Every structure is written in structure tokens, then in C-alpha cells.
Simulated scan of single mutants.
Amino acid sequence: MHITREHPHAQQGPAEHFTGSVWLDELAAPAPPSRLRMFDVHFAPGAHTAWHRHPHGQVLHVLRGEGRVQRRGGAVETIRAGDTVWIEPDEWHWHGAGPDTFMSHLAVVEAAADGTTIDWGAHVDHHHTTA
């Protein structure tokens, strides 16, 4: 068993993958053979990811605020504190805060055998970000 009391400093989400102010706190990245990765992600109002996908899917659990999530070809869905979202492996999607509220969620992924956790795509058109 390991108890981690010191975590890396929060990292600002780079503009090439995020729109608006987004901060990521890495909570867990255990040594191999584990491939678990867990982040606490903080979105300012209107901030969101670019389109992306994960080789083994992703779990989002909303901690605070209200946000939006959309899978490619689907409707924009509103998510709120307490909601948990399962995103299928290799499913293109984006997620972020609603237009008038901050939103924080836990993001849990499993890395692929080569260590990759994400494949980034294009930025989301702004007309797609409202529910």
C-alpha cells in the first residue's frame, strides 16, 4: 500500500488541446504493472477539451458545477455534480464546463500497453458547445 500526500503541481491545459482556462491535477499514476491514471480537472466557465479519444475508454465523475459532454454524432449532454459518465474505448468526444459555471471532474483512464492514454483531434466548433 502507498499513501501519496504530495502530488505534482497543477498543470494548465495547453491551448492546442483545450479552449479556455483548464487546470489538471494528477491524482494517481501508479507504477507498472498498473496502467491507471486519475486526474482532477478544473474548467472555467465555457472552457472545454478538443475532440479526443482514449484507447480503453474514460470515466468522468463530476465533483462540482455543471458541464457539457458530447460524443461524435451525438447530442450535447448536460452533466452535473454527482453524475458519472462512461465513454467507450476509442469514442471521439469532448467535455467541459457550461457557459456560466465552473466545473470540476475526476477523469480516470487506463493507459495502453505503450503508455498512451489519449489521441487528440481538432478543436470543437463553438456552436457545438451548448446543450
Rank of each mutant, 00 (worst) to 15 (best):
P8M: 08
A31V: 11
L63G: 07
P32K: 03
W94T: 07
F102W: 14
P14Y: 10
W23N: 13
W51K: 11
A28L: 10
D114L: 00
L60W: 05
P45Y: 07
S104G: 09
Q12A: 15
I118Y: 08
A75Y: 02
T19P: 07
I79W: 12
P45G: 10
H95F: 06
L63C: 07
F39V: 14
P30F: 06
I3P: 01
G65S: 15
L63Q: 12
F43R: 12
T129C: 13
G98K: 02
G57E: 09
T130K: 12
H93E: 04
F102R: 14
H52F: 04
F43G: 08
T4Y: 06
A28F: 08
G57K: 11
R5P: 05
Q12G: 12
V85T: 00
H42Y: 11
P45F: 05
V62S: 01
T117V: 14
H105K: 07
V59D: 07
A122D: 10
E110Q: 11
V62M: 03
H56P: 01
P55T: 02
Q58I: 00
V22P: 14
T4C: 10
D83M: 06
Q58D: 01
W23R: 14
A31Q: 06
T78K: 00
E110H: 12
A15D: 07
H9N: 14
G20V: 14
H127V: 11
G121R: 10
A28E: 07
E26S: 12
P45A: 10
G74C: 00
W51E: 01
S21M: 13
H2A: 13
V69S: 05
H42L: 12
S34P: 00
H127D: 15
E91K: 13
H48N: 01
V22E: 13
V59L: 04
